[in-house]
């Protein structure tokens, strides 16, 4: 499955709830304000393990728009919209954590 998260963990618990129910083969893509979760900050530990496994992606346009390109946490993979489409194709059912 592909889980998209579009909220900052400083605003809502969408990422936490996503993490609570994500299975071992699923990946996470941060979009919109969700990319704030991809920045290196006090909540980065939430996704550190998954990122190490190469299972955390962030939408490049949203990262750049928010000025956090140079502040990304370790092992976050950036994708463009075509990459987003590929993730949906590759990972089956898409779940949006809004």
């Amino acid at each position: 499955m592909l889980h998209t998260v579009n909220k900052s963990s400083f605003e809502r618990n969408s990422l936490q709830t996503c993490l609570n129910t994500i299975d071992d083969s699923s990946v996470i893509l941060f979009i919109e304000d969700g990319v704030i979760n991809a920045a290196n900050n006090t909540k980065s530990s939430m996704i550190a393990d998954l990122a190490t496994q190469g299972r955390v992606f962030a939408l490049q346009g949203d990262v750049e728009a928010r000025g956090i390109s140079s502040k990304l946490a370790d092992n976050i993979k950036l994708v463009d919209y075509a990459g987003f489409v590929d993730l949906v194709v590759k990972h089956g059912t898409a779940v949006s954590w809004v």
């Binding site: 299975d23 949006s96 954590w97 809004v98």
Partner: peptide, 17 residues
């Protein structure tokens, strides 16, 4: 539980949020 929900979600074809 979260684990049970994870298993149920994994089986879904369409998830509407």
């Amino acid at each position: 539980t979260n684990d049970e929900l994870t298993a149920i979600m994994s089986e879904q074809d369409v998830c509407l949020s």
